[in-house]
């Protein structure tokens, strides 16, 4: 049985690194107390959780923002994904490349542009005063709205990609048949194409939701310290106030939210998928 030994030898280094640099540190940080750190483990963490109103407020904001971002990303991304799936090959390649391109850029680069647009002397504020809609400069920066806008731009490509993949598997003849039977273009899309593509679209929505819950750079730059999310609060506890028990508690909440979203998505498509 040399084959099994070879398999073991091939797996061993990867598994060892995964265990030492990922599984052990994450498990200990989330549920146990690391040695030499003033932290009493899970009990302390849950205590910190129950007592800390900041965490709950940040958690509520994070979930609210993530849900809104997911809805907006679907609104913007679904039409583009559908359009790409129904385009001739050449145009499809160009449109897809345009939609995927932002993923090559760091979140810092992609968020930076919103500082130019949303600041007090930014493009939007000057446009609003220029048009006479507002008298004073509008400060959109460091608000929840700014975070939602920034995150929506960050994650729309994920919906475009997954929606494109899902719609590409729905044969255009099905819509044509619906049209032939008298459905309008809108209801052919709503009642034929969309339901068939739904499982794929839900995968995209989950990725966006999880991404928005854990996003860090964007809430830090656009939300500032006045609108903390779980991610910026974790950074704050870990690096600024050095409150490790609370930091671990936030990490726990964040991980649970993401894993719950992932688990939910893993179950829903199976039910929503056409049999």
């Amino acid at each position: 049985m040399w084959r099994r030994r070879t398999t073991g030898l091939l797996l061993a280094p990867g598994l060892a690194v995964l265990a030492l640099v990922f599984l052990y540190p994450v498990a200990v940080t989330l549920v146990a107390a690391p040695a030499g750190v003033d932290d009493g483990g899970l009990a302390d963490r849950l205590g910190a959780l129950a007592a800390d109103e900041h965490i709950w407020r940040a958690a509520a904001r994070t979930v609210r923002v993530a849900a809104l971002v997911t809805a907006l990303c679907l609104l913007l991304g679904l039409p583009v994904g559908f359009l790409i799936s129904r385009s001739p090959p050449r145009r499809r390649a160009v449109l897809l490349a345009l939609a995927v391109f932002p993923l090559l850029l760091s979140t810092v680069v992609r968020t930076y542009s919103w500082l130019v647009i949303l600041g007090r002397t930014g493009l939007l504020s000057r446009a609003l005063t220029g048009l006479g809609l507002t008298e004073r400069p509008t400060q959109l920066l460091y608000t929840e709205t700014a975070v939602v806008i920034g995150l929506t731009q960050l994650f729309t490509p994920l919906v475009i990609i997954t929606a494109y993949g899902a719609f590409a598997h729905v044969h255009p003849d099905l819509e044509a048949a619906a049209r032939g039977l008298g459905a309008s273009a809108g209801s052919a899309f709503r009642r034929v194409a969309l339901p068939l593509a739904l499982p794929g679209v839900l995968v995209g929505a989950t990725l966006v939701f999880a991404g928005a819950v854990t996003a860090f750079t964007t809430p830090l730059l656009l939300g500032g310290t006045r609108t903390p999310t779980l991610a910026t609060l974790l950074y704050d506890y870990a690096n600024v106030t050095v409150d490790w028990s609370s930091a671990a508690a936030v990490a726990l909440v964040m991980t649970v939210v993401v894993l719950a979203a992932g688990a939910l998505a893993a179950r829903v498509p199976a039910k929503a998928a056409p049999s």
Partner: peptide, 19 residues
């Protein structure tokens, strides 16, 4: 890639760097 990067970063900071 499922566990939040910030959580991984914090865990590595505590276990690798501090401990």
């Amino acid at each position: 890639v499922v566990v939040p990067e910030l959580v991984l970063g914090y865990a590595l900071f505590q276990i690798l760097m501090v401990t």
